[in-house]
Design a protein around this nucleic acid. Structure first.
Length: 945
RNA sequence: GCCCGGGUGGCGGAAUGGUAGACGCAGCGGACUUAAAAUCCGUUGCUCGCAAGAGCGUGCGGGUUCGAGUCCCGCCCUGGGCACCA
C-alpha cells in the first residue's frame, strides 16, 4: 500500500466493487431495526451538482453508513423531481424537449453522486415525470377529490406575465415572481385547489410531535397564521347623532342597540347571495335583529371595542355598493374614484408598509354594539379584502395602522387600555387630540401591550385584557351579534398550472359543465408527446391545443373534454418518500405493510428554503393518506435537519459610465476573468482599488461562482472533499468555500495512510481475543484510552449532527497514536495489540466520512470485505476513563494553579492538595478563608477575603 | 413592525454553569534539500515584563452565582423568514 493518500489509485476500484457487490442495495433483514435517511427531492439542473449540494448529501450519507454498521436496515434512496417550470423553461430556451433533457441531467447528477461516494440505492430511483410514478400522483389527486379536498373555482390568481403562468401564493415573493422576479398581476381563471385549510389546526398541533428545528416550526406556524378573535356584526346608519362622544352612558350587559336611530328608511341588508363570484374567503353572513344594512368585522382585540372611533372597509367590499346607493352624488363620486384608483395600484405597492395611509369617508356610520356610539366608516386600501371579513373596527389608541390613519384624517383617539406598570397618573379619561403637537407619530409602546387593564370602557373598566376579551365575546354571542372564532391566514393550495411539463389532472369535463374523474383503471392520463408545448400568452394551457388529448369519449359514447391544466411540481414531491418504500409496485401506490415498516422518514435533510412550501404540502398529503388508512403515520418526517449554504467568492466591479446600479446593489456582477483584468489595471495604477471587490454569495450558475465536486474530486479526491465538507463548519452554518481547506483534509488523510503503513507489518488481526485475556497496561494503555474515548465521542457526535467535531476527534486521536509511534516498542505485546486495535478501530470510525480510503486501508491490513459491512466500533467506559485528573484551583473564581491527582481522589484530598499549592498561598496569605467549593475531579475554588 | 438564528484569536470554529480558544487553516522559527515543493519538529489570544509572573479577554450595559461564552433583564450589530393579516 502507498504511504500516502493517493485517491486516483483506488477510488475507481472501490466504486466498481461496490457496484458489483450491490453494496448499497436496501436490505430488509428480519428482526433488525430500520432507519430511513432521506435528502430533499432534487430538481436535476443542467448546471450539475456544486459542492453546495454535496453539503446536503454527504452528512446524510455519513448517518446512513453509520446506521448500517450499527445493524440497522437502512433505506437511503434518491430520485428526481423532474416536472415543473424550471425544466420546461430551460427546454423552451434550448429548443429541446424537457423529457430527455431532464433525464440526461438526472444521469449527470447520479454520476456526480457516485463520484462523491454517496451510498444511494439506485435500484429504487425514479423521476416524478415517469408515467409509472405520476399514475399514482393522479390516483392521490382522485383520492383527494373523493374526500372533498380537491375542487375547482374561479379565483383571482397571481399571474406572472413573463413565465405566462399562475403562481401559488407561496411563489410570490414581495409581489414578484419567485423565479424571474417579474411583478405579479391579478387574473381571473378557473383553478384547481387542494383544501389544505381543512387541516390547518392539525398541521399546527402535530408540529409538537416532530423533531424539527424550532425556526422551521415557527415559520410553519406563522404561515398557517392562527388567530383567535371575535367576529361581529355592526349596523350601518346614515346619520351621526352620537358621533364623537354622543352616547357615553351604558346600561349594562344585555343592552340592545339604541332603537331611535333607525328612523331613516334604509336599503335591504346585503346577504350571501350578493357576494361577488370568486370571493369565497369572506362570508358576509348577517345576524340580523333589525332591518337595514349590516357588516361584519373580525378583531383579535375585542377588549379594545370601546376605543373604536371609526371603521374601515376594503375598496372591494360589497358594502361600498350598498352605501353608495344611498349617499349624495358628490360623495358617491369621490368614493368611486378612490376605489377605482385603489384597484389600479399594484399589489406590490399596496403592500408596501412605508406607504402613507389613504382613504375616503364612505358616507355612512357604524353603530358600536358595545356603547351604541356612531363612528364613521371609511374606505381605505390598508384593509385587505382577502383576510378576515375585509372590514375592521379601528382602534387608533391601540393599533399602529389605525393610529396612522387617525392622525392623517384627524380622527379621535381614545386609549382604553392602561399599562399595569403605571401608577394611575395616566390619562385615564382624557382623549388624545389627533392634532395635538405633543402627540407622537407612533403610539405608546405600552399601548399595544396585552397585559394592561381596561379604562374608558364603561363597566368593563378595571378588567384585565384577557377577562374583557372573554366577557365581551360571551356577551356578543349571547346577543347573537357576534361569535368567538379562530381564523387562519393559510389559503387553500392552488395546484393548477397552465403549462405542459407537469402531471396531468385526471378530470374530464362534460358538455353540460359536469366534471368527472378519469376511472382508476384508465390511469395514468399520459402527457402527450408533442413537438410544441410553449404556453399561449392568453394563459391557456398548451394541452388545450392538442385535439387528440383534449377530446374524449366515455364508454357510453358521451363526449367530453379533458382538463388541460397540469399540477404544480409540489404535488409530485408531496408523496415521493412513500413511493421509495415500494418503488416498483404496479398494483398500488405502495404496499401499506412496506410503508408501515419504513415510515416515517427518520432523518430528512435539506435546505431551509422549503420551510413552508414542500414541507407543509407533504405533511398535508400524509395526513390525508393517514386518514384513508394507507399509511400508519400522520407525520412523514420525524427528524428534519437543514444544512447551511456553501457560499462562493463572487467578484463585483464598479459601474462604468452609462451603467446604473439597481436599488440595493453595491456593484455589478462580473466574471473571474474580467476581475483578473481589472485587478491588473489596479496593480498598474490605471484604476483605483475600489473598482473591484468580492462578496460571498450562494453558488449559482448565473453568478459564475460555482465550484463542482468534479474538479474537487479530480484535484483532491472524493474523501478529501467529504472530510472537508464535514469539518469546515457546524452542519447548519453557512460556509465560505476555500480550496485551501480541502488541502488540509488531504493532509489529514495522508497522515492516516502513513500511520497505517507504519503499523501494518505489526498488525495483529486477532488483537481482540488476545486483549480479552491479556491485561494491557503500560505502553499500550494510552493508545487504548485515546481510541476508546474517540469511539465514544464520535458515536455521539454523528448522532447529534456534529460532523465537524467528529472529524476533529479523529484528528486528535490520530495525533495521539502517531505520537505513540515515536517511542514504538514492537517487542512489547501490549503495545502491538493496542496499536492493532487502534488501526482497525480508526479505519472503521473513518469509514462513514471517507469510505474509499477506509476500504483501501481495510484491505491493506489484510482484511476482507467492505467496511460498510463491519460492526461499528464499541467502546469501554473503563478503558476510556483517565486514571489521573487535572484539577483547576481557583481563588475567588480566578485560576491560580492546576494540580494532577489520581482519578479516585476524594474531595478532602483535592482540597488539601489545593491548599498546599504555593501559587494558591500567594493569593490567600493574610486573608480569611470563607468557603471552599469542591467539584469532584474538576475544580477547587477557594473563597478568601 | 413581528418571529427565528448568530456575534468567541489573523481565519473556520471547540467548550453538560466549573482550566475559554479543542481540532484545523494561515503565520513565525527550525530540520531535511544544491534549491524548491512535500514532509517532520517547535511556536502562536492581547498587553506589560529579560524572566518568573501579572493584568486583560467570548458584541455593549446591568443582574443571579463561590464561579457566566453558557442562565436572567435591557441594548447594539448582523443573517434569515413573515408582513397594512385586523
Amino acid at each position: 500500500m502507498s504511504e500516502r493518500y493517493e485517491p486516483n489509485s483506488f477510488e475507481d476500484k472501490w466504486r466498481s466493487r461496490w457496484s458489483e457487490a450491490q453494496l448499497f442495495r436496501t436490505r430488509e433483514v428480519p428482526g433488525k431495526p430500520k432507519f430511513y435517511g432521506l435528502d430533499f427531492f432534487p430538481y436535476p439542473s443542467g448546471a450539475g451538482l456544486s459542492v453546495g449540494h454535496c453539503r446536503n448529501y454527504i452528512p446524510t450519507d455519513v448517518i446512513c453508513r453509520k446506521k448500517l454498521m450499527e445493524g440497522f436496515n437502512v433505506l437511503h434512496p434518491m430520485g428526481f423531481d423532474a416536472f415543473g417550470l424550471p425544466a420546461e423553461n430551460e427546454a423552451i430556451s434550448k429548443k429541446t424537449h424537457p423529457s430527455p433533457m431532464v433525464k440526461s441531467y438526472g444521469e449527470n447528477y447520479r454520476r456526480q453522486m457516485d463520484l462523491v461516494g454517496i451510498s444511494y440505492d439506485w435500484s429504487r430511483s425514479f423521476y416524478s415525470s415517469d408515467p409509472e410514478y405520476y399514475k399514482w400522483t393522479q390516483w392521490i389527486f382522485e383520492l383527494l377529490y373523493k374526500r372533498g379536498l380537491a375542487y375547482r373555482r374561479l379565483a383571482k390568481v397571481n399571474w406572472c406575465p413573463k413565465d405566462l403562468t399562475v403562481l401559488a401564493d407561496e411563489e410570490v415573493e414581495g409581489g414578484n415572481c419567485w423565479r424571474c422576479g417579474t411583478p405579479v398581476e391579478k387574473k381571473d381563471i378557473p383553478q384547481w385547489f387542494f383544501k389544505i385549510t381543512a387541516y390547518a389546526q392539525r398541521l399546527i398541533d402535530d408540529l409538537d410531535t416532530v423533531d424539527w428545528p424550532d425556526g422551521i416550526k415557527n415559520m410553519q406556524r406563522n404561515w398557517i397564521g392562527r388567530s383567535e378573535g371575535v367576529e361581529f356584526d355592526m349596523k350601518v346608519v346614515f346619520d351621526s347623532p352620537s358621533l364623537f362622544g354622543g352616547t357615553t352612558k351604558r346600561e349594562g350587559l344585555g343592552r340592545e342597540f339604541p332603537g331611535e336611530l333607525d328612523s331613516t328608511p334604509l336599503p335591504p341588508p346585503f346577504s350571501r347571495n350578493e357576494k361577488e363570484e370568486g370571493d369565497s374567503e369572506s362570508d358576509f353572513v348577517v345576524i340580523s335583529h333589525e332591518p337595514g344594512p349590516h357588516f361584519r368585522v373580525f378583531t383579535t382585540r375585542i377588549d379594545t371595542i370601546f376605543g373604536m372611533t371609526f371603521c374601515v372597509i376594503a375598496p372591494e367590499h360589497p358594502l361600498v355598493e350598498t352605501i353608495l346607493s344611498t349617499v349624495p352624488a358628490e360623495r358617491k363620486t369621490e368614493v368611486e374614484a378612490y376605489c377605482t384608483a385603489a384597484k389600479a395600484v399594484s399589489d406590490l405597492d399596496r403592500q408596501a408598509t412605508t406607504r402613507e395611509k389613504s382613504g375616503v369617508f364612505a358616507g355612512a356610520f357604524a353603530v358600536n354594539p358595545a356603547n351604541g356610539k356612531h363612528v364613521p366608516i371609511y374606505v381605505a386600501d390598508y384593509v385587505l379584502m382577502g383576510y378576515g371579513t375585509g372590514a375592521i373596527m379601528s382602534v387608533p389608541g391601540h393599533d399602529q395602522r389605525d393610529f396612522d390613519f387617525a392622525k392623517k384624517f384627524g380622527i379621535e383617539i381614545i386609549p382604553v387600555i392602561k399599562d399595569v406598570g403605571m401608577d394611575g397618573a395616566g390619562s385615564e379619561t382624557s382623549t388624545i387630540s389627533p392634532n395635538s403637537p405633543s402627540s407622537s407619530t407612533s403610539i405608546d409602546h405600552a399601548s399595544e401591550a396585552k397585559d394592561g387593564i381596561l379604562i374608558n370602557s364603561g363597566e368593563y373598566d378595571g378588567l384585565s385584557v384577557a377577562e374583557a376579551q372573554k366577557l365581551l365575546g360571551e356577551w356578543m354571542e349571547g346577543l347573537e351579534i357576534g361569535e368567538q372564532i379562530v381564523r387562519y391566514k393559510l389559503r387553500d393550495w392552488l395546484i393548477s398550472r397552465q403549462r405542459y411539463w407537469g402531471c396531468p389532472i385526471p378530470v374530464v369535463h362534460s358538455k353540460d359543465g359536469d366534471e368527472s374523474l378519469v376511472p382508476e383503471e384508465d390511469l395514468p392520463v399520459e402527457l402527450p408527446d408533442v413537438e410544441s408545448y410553449e404556453p399561449a400568452d392568453d394563459g391557456s394551457s398548451p394541452l388545450s391545443r392538442i385535439r387528440e388529448f383534449v377530446n374524449v369519449t366515455d364508454p357510453e359514447g358521451t363526449l367530453g373534454q379533458r382538463e388541460t391544466d397540469t399540477m404544480g411540481g409540489f404535488a409530485c414531491s408531496s408523496w415521493y418518500f412513500l413511493r421509495f418504500c415500494d418503488p416498483t409496485n404496479s398494483e398500488d401506490p405502495w404496499d401499506p405493510a412496506k410503508a408501515d415498516y419504513w415510515m416515517p422518514v427518520d432523518c430528512y435533510v435539506g435546505g431551509a428554503e422549503h420551510a413552508v412550501m414542500h414541507l407543509l404540502y407533504a405533511r398535508f398529503w400524509t395526513k390525508v393518506l393517514f386518514d384513508e388508512g394507507l399509511v400508519s403515520v400522520s407525520e412523514p418526517f420525524q427528524r428534519l435537519m437543514n444544512q447551511g449554504q456553501v457560499l462562493g467568492l463572487t467578484p463585483y466591479r464598479k459601474p462604468q459610465e452609462g451603467e446604473k446600479l439597481q436599488v440595493g446593489e453595491e456593484g455589478l456582477l462580473t466574471s473571474f476573468d474580467e476581475a483578473a483584468e481589472i485587478q491588473a489595471k489596479i496593480d498598474s495604477g490605471e484604476l483605483d482599488a475600489d473598482n473591484l471587490f468580492y462578496r460571498w454569495a450562494r453558488m449559482s450558475k448565473s453568478k459564475g461562482n460555482v465550484v463542482t465536486p468534479d474538479e474537487m474530486v479530480d484535484q483532491y479526491g472524493a474523501d478529501a472533499l467529504r472530510i472537508y465538507e464535514l469539518f469546515v463548519a457546524p452542519f447548519e452554518s453557512d460556509v465560505q468555500w476555500s480550496n485551501d481547506g480541502v488541502a488540509g483534509a488531504t493532509r489529514f488523510l495522508n497522515r492516516v495512510f502513513r500511520w497505517v503503513s507504519d503499523v501494518q507489518d505489526y498488525y495483529e488481526p486477532n488483537w481482540e481475543s488476545f486483549l480479552a485475556v491479556e491485561n494491557v497496561e503500560g505502553k499500550g494503555i494510552g493508545i487504548r484510552r485515546a481510541i476508546h474515548q474517540a469511539t465514544k465521542k464520535i458515536s455521539a457526535d454523528i448522532d447529534r449532527f456534529a460532523f465537524n467535531t467528529y472529524v476533529s476527534e479523529m484528528m486528535k486521536c490520530l495525533n495521539v497514536v502517531t505520537d505513540a509511534l515515536k517511542n514504538a516498542d514492537w517487542t512489547d505485546r501490549g503495545f502491538i495489540l493496542a496499536m492493532s486495535e487502534a488501526v482497525e478501530t480508526l479505519v472503521l470510525l473513518l469509514a462513514p466520512a471517507a469510505p474509499f480510503s477506509a476500504d483501501e486501508l481495510w484491505e491493506s491490513i489484510g482484511r476482507n470485505g467492505f467496511t460498510l459491512n463491519q460492526h461499528w466500533p464499541s467502546y469501554s467506559e473503563a478503558i476510556a476513563a483517565e486514571d489521573t485528573v487535572t484539577i483547576a484551583v481557583q481563588v475567588n473564581g480566578k485560576l491560580r494553579d492546576t494540580i494532577t491527582l489520581g482519578a479516585d481522589a476524594t474531595n478532602e484530598e483535592m482540597e488539601a492538595a489545593a491548599m498546599s499549592s504555593e501559587k494558591v498561598k500567594v493569593h490567600t496569605d493574610g486573608k480569611q478563608i470563607r468557603k471552599v467549593i469542591v467539584i469532584p475531579a474538576k475544580l477547587v475554588n477557594i473563597v478568601a477575603q
